[in-house]
């Protein structure tokens, strides 16, 4: 009996601003990419394995307007979905889960107050808690070395946290998954950050969702053959029809990657 036919997940990400989906290139230069509820329905029909909704303005403009949108999405969607953006306390997280989301994602708030992860895991169960980590490979001053650092505030602010150390801490505190976005790769469509994704996916026992840089099928083949990532996440290639989800999954299947067809 084959021991593991757990499929690699393909996750379209819908960045939400003012109730509409947008996708920035390197987090700036936003383009309107449509109504999130309509997009959600389309993606489910196309065979997306999960969806991720991130309110990208939430960390600077405190917003709690997500709940009605989550309810609307939950009523139409027959696959799991994650909601992130501006979630900085257990109360709002519970409201979003109650509104029908399967998981919540926290980012800046968890870096600022790591106990939030423990509280969320305790209250909702680890399977509901995704920690989103924006990472950037930067040069260490006055050396020829580089290091992966965690950024917050939608990628605007560098923190003193080293990425792998932080992700391990997230796991210890009860995170159920890590959504790793490489800022060096995001928006480039030149492929995922394979090196750090590989290290993380081997060192952590929780699933890693890789995000940033996925531009064609080969990038996803590389992701799943060269790392132990459980899922690949992308946005604009799906939103603008450059790489429809069914085409991607059929091509991955032909390349020997176990996906749900």
């Amino acid at each position: 009996m084959q021991n593991n036919m757990l499929k690699k997940r393909i996750i379209p990400c819908l960045d939400i601003k003012d109730g509409r989906t947008v996708k920035g290139i390197n987090f700036v230069g936003l383009r309107d990419a449509g109504d999130p509820v309509e997009l959600a329905k389309q993606y489910a029909l196309q065979g997306a394995d999960e969806l991720c909704f991130l309110d990208i303005t939430a960390t600077i403009e405190k917003r709690e307007t997500l709940v009605p949108l989550v309810k609307e999405i939950a009523s139409v969607l027959n696959i799991p979905f994650t909601v992130g953006g501006g979630i900085n306390d257990v109360k709002l997280a519970k409201e979003i889960i109650k509104a029908g989301a399967d998981k919540i994602a926290v980012n800046s708030a968890a870096v600022k107050r790591p106990e939030l992860i423990n509280e969320l895991a305790q209250e909702l169960g680890s399977q509901c808690v995704v920690v989103a980590v924006d990472t950037k490979l930067i040069e260490v001053d006055n050396t020829d070395k580089s290091t992966n650092k965690v950024f917050i505030g939608g990628g605007r602010f560098e923190t003193d946290k080293e990425t792998i150390t932080w992700c391990k801490e997230c796991e210890t505190r009860g995170a159920g998954e890590i959504l790793l976005t490489s800022m060096n790769h995001d928006g480039t469509k030149n492929g995922f950050a394979l090196e750090i994704t590989d290290v993380l996916s081997r060192e952590l026992n929780i699933p890693i969702i890789a995000s940033g840089g996925g531009g064609n099928t080969q990038h996803f083949v590389d992701l799943f053959s060269k790392t132990h990532a459980s899922a690949g996440l992308a946005a604009s290639i799906f939103h603008f029809g450059e790489l429809p989800v069914p085409d991607l999954k059929n091509q991955l299947n032909e390349a020997g990657v176990a996906v749900r067809i």
């Binding site: 021991n3 757990l6 997940r9 680890s126 399977q127 026992n205 699933p207 459980s230």
Partner: peptide, 8 residues
């Protein structure tokens, strides 16, 4: 293989 068994 990671636990929980999560996904499709």
């Amino acid at each position: 293989l990671k636990v929980p068994h999560m996904g499709w």
